[in-house]
Structures are given as structure tokens and as C-alpha cells.
């Protein structure tokens, strides 16, 4: 089977790439907005931590686990009514963002929790001995000290979101995934499939490099 590269519509590919970036950017933004406090809460309420609260922690943890165990494709479909209610449509870039955020937030929150666990207990204790409030400990110690870990968590989440956006093409989410499905899969245009996959690979590589660079920059250990 010969490949005919002339069938590629570069204008559409460019547009789809831009849609993918927008979906990833917005959903990353909201994922951090909701996931960071959630992760901090998960950490603080766990055993032997500042706000230890077994029941609250268990419930939160359970909800996070449930959301994480639902396959993203199922989540996409199940969320259609909620998405339509939230943003007025379940299609396109806007329609893809709510399921992306719901899918990625518990994942990111767990990564945040893990990053905070890496902060030396002794350091927290030292700052407690200086008379810091819990709020000050979170802002002045936990988050700054965990910065490299948090940035790594953002990188991993951003990359996960890229692959999720590709999946949201299945329900008409727009972006590169949508393109790959409509042309590459449904119309048997293998060329489109190859190009979109290549673009996704490049995007993931760039994100990883950017993330690694940022982590190295803030890491003072």
C-alpha cells in the first residue's frame, strides 16, 4: 500500500494541533487548581501529619481511587450530560475540558501527595519549633520544599492529558485525536494517522524536556 502524502490538509492539522494544545492547557490549569489543594489535603489529613483525620482522609482517598479506576473512555461518555450542563456543549474543545479535568485531578492529587511526602519530616518539625502555624507550614515549607516534585507531577500530568485529549476525539472532542479518528481511522487515510501520531510524539517529548529543565532549575538539593 503506497502512501500519498498529498492528501494531507496541513491547515486542518495545524488547527487540530492548536486545539490539542488548548485542551491540554486549560485542563492542566483546572487540574492544578483543583488537584493541588486536594493533594495537600490528602497529605495533611493522613496519619501522623498536621491535620490527621482518619475518616476524612479515607473518604477523600476512596473518591480519588474510584475516579482513577474508571477508564477514561467510560468517564468521557458518562460525563456527557454533566459536561453539557457545565459548558453548554459536550463537543469540541470546551466539551472535552470537564472530563479531562475530572479524569486528571485525582491522578494529579495523588502525585502531589507523594511529592509532599518527600519533604523531610525534620524540616517540618524545625519550623514547628519556630512557632509556625499550620498555614505557614504549608505555604512556607511544604510547597516550596516540594517544588521539584510538584513540577515533575505537573509534567507527568500534562503528558497524561495529551494522551487523554487524543482519546476524547472518540466522542468528538476535537484536536489531533479527533483528526486521527475521522480521517485516519474512518476514512483509512493512514498518512493522517502517521502525522498526528508524530506530532503527538514531538509534543510529549517537548513537554518532558521542558518539565525536566524546570525541575533541574528549582532543585537545590
Amino acid at each position: 500500500m503506497g502512501l500519498d502524502w498529498s492528501v494531507l490538509d496541513w491547515g486542518e492539522i495545524g488547527l487540530a494541533s492548536w486545539d490539542t494544545l488548548r485542551m491540554m492547557g486549560w485542563s492542566l490549569f483546572f487540574t492544578i487548581l483543583f488537584g493541588l489543594p486536594l493533594g495537600v489535603l490528602l497529605f495533611l489529613t493522613s496519619r501522623r501529619q498536621l491535620l490527621q483525620h482518619t475518616w476524612f482522609n479515607r473518604v477523600l482517598s476512596f473518591v480519588a481511587n474510584v475516579l482513577r479506576s474508571v477508564p477514561f473512555l467510560i468517564l468521557l461518555v458518562v460525563m456527557i450530560p454533566l459536561t453539557a450542563w457545565l459548558v453548554g456543549t459536550s463537543l469540541g474543545v470546551e466539551g472535552a475540558i470537564p472530563p479531562l479535568v475530572v479524569g486528571a485531578t485525582p491522578f494529579f492529587a495523588r502525585l502531589v501527595e507523594n511529592a509532599l511526602r518527600e519533604v523531610d519530616r525534620g524540616v517540618i518539625e524545625a519550623v514547628q519549633s519556630l512557632g509556625a502555624s499550620r498555614w505557614q507550614i504549608v505555604w512556607k515549607v511544604l510547597l516550596p520544599e516540594a517544588r521539584p516534585g510538584l513540577l515533575a507531577a505537573v509534567t507527568v500530568t500534562a503528558i497524561t492529558l495529551v494522551s487523554y485529549t487524543a482519546m476524547s476525539g472518540v466522542i468528538g472532542g476535537g484536536g489531533l485525536g479527533d483528526l486521527a479518528i475521522r480521517y485516519g481511522y474512518q476514512r483509512f487515510q493512514t498518512e493522517v494517522m502517521i502525522v498526528t501520531v508524530l506530532i503527538l510524539i514531538v509534543l510529549v517529548q517537548l513537554l518532558q524536556m521542558l518539565g525536566d529543565w524546570l525541575v533541574a532549575r528549582v532543585s537545590k538539593k
Binding site: 525534620g122 524540616v123 524545625a126 519549633s129 519556630l130 512557632g131 509556625a132 516550596p144 537545590k220 538539593k221
Partner: peptide
């Protein structure tokens, strides 16, 4: 009150416990 008491009592640790990001 406990917090303001702690501000009056300095503590030095075996493993220093400094903030690595500062």
C-alpha cells in the same frame, strides 16, 4: 499561646533541618 512560646525557645537539630529551597 503555644506558638508564641515556641518563638521564645530556639532549637537546634542533629540533622540541621534546614529548608533546601532557601
Amino acid at each position: 499561646e503555644l506558638r508564641s512560646m515556641r518563638q521564645q525557645v530556639g532549637m537546634v537539630f542533629q540533622h540541621f533541618n534546614l529548608l533546601s529551597s532557601r
